[in-house]
Design a protein around this nucleic acid. Sequence first.
DNA 1: ATGTAC
Length: 485
Amino acid sequence: MAVLKDFIRISDTIWELPITYKEGMRVPARIYATQKLMENMDEGVIDQVTNVATLPGIVKYAYCMPDGHWGYGFPIGGVAAMDLKTGVISPGGIGFDVNCGMRLVLTNLTYDEVKPQLRKLVDRLFARVPSGVGGSGFVRISQDEFRHVLEQGARWCIKNGYGWQEDLERTEERGCISGADSSKVSNKAIERGFKQIGTLGSGNHYLEIQVVRPENVFDPQLAKTFGITQPEQIVVMFHCGSRGFGHQVATDYLQSFLKVMEKKYGIKILDRELACAPFFSPEGQDYFAAMKCAINMSFANRQVILHRVREVFAEVFNRDPEDLGMHQVYDVAHNTAKVEEHIVDGKPRQLLVHRKGATRAFGPGAAELPEIYKKTGQPVIVGGSMETGSYLLVGVEEGAQTFFSTAHGSGRTMSRHQAKKQFHGKKLLEDMEQRGIYVRSVSFSGLAEEAGPAYKDIDEVVQATERSGISKKVTRFIPIGNIKG
DNA sequence: ATGTAC
């Protein structure tokens, strides 16, 4: 539990630890949380976010979002912007599951229309979207072709018939980050990844059917612009990443950084898990180019899954996906490091922004946003636990304070081990069905790990982001069907 | 998160 007296309270939802808190801190650390979230904040977060504050080149603050919890090196929920010339790039600040992210898709169906078909729909999705540890997808391509996927991302998918052209402009980076170089990726990573496009994975990865209750529309105007136009509307949300491929890229470069960090670059860190290299070093640049391949692999993964989701809906309702209004709202990444321009103390600066379990949330007018969202600000998809619900938020101008970053989900309160001891998968599944949520999972123990009480209160997390001014509520979604990886 | 151990 956090020792609150150590913190300077900047506002009711911003808590600061000054550089005197720990030797070597270059900038203060800031945690975004309500009092209630702060009282229960993982002690590991405080240790880790202040460790991050010691990294070379860090600008302004080391941040942790309200859904923060202990992670590898950096906390999950960590945000750190580095000066390009003096700063480092750190795999621990991005996460093993590079570009783990969320995609939200509309339908024009209502709850009453979907309810009689719910079991069939979930069963078909479970059968057609591969999930679980390992597992290969239905996209059969050679390892050489996979290299094209790594460099073209979701664009490769559209070219090959998996999706609609408009999906690209509704995806962060338009589904393809530039600068991905597959020659910087190991053969081992290619071998692990080339059969994994279109697969959900395991852990907290899932695909969910959700309903928008009228009382959960907080900004009707924005909701309408994002395509939420009718009462009890059904949407599909899913969460997955770059699978074994991204994991292998992270593993490869962590090893490479550990070899050179101290000997070649004289960087001393407080925790091996903070392994890093100067951004402009050969090792740093190679990792950046390889990590971008994993970003693109993940965009492609979610693009192919979207294609499958549309196919299944078309089958079950015997209507075209176009006719079902299955437009994508947006796709957000929440494990990345990207070069972005931000205003620091009144001057524009190029920064490497690490977001690990944190969502980019650009406000209205940002150059990176597509025309359709230029005026509104960026849609932000925040996935809650399978029992409680999720949110659609929007980026706001005040988000500049966190380099336009906000929360990405609920955040765990309990270790997986502890959750497995406390909950029983089969009973949980039955309880959820009683409450109108139909779940399919490859593993009961995996299901138990994802029980609602193993996560923070999503409403409290979202409130913290809104009250601190880093994002704003649009709608809340209630789960009715879940495919758990 | 992860071919849940090089």
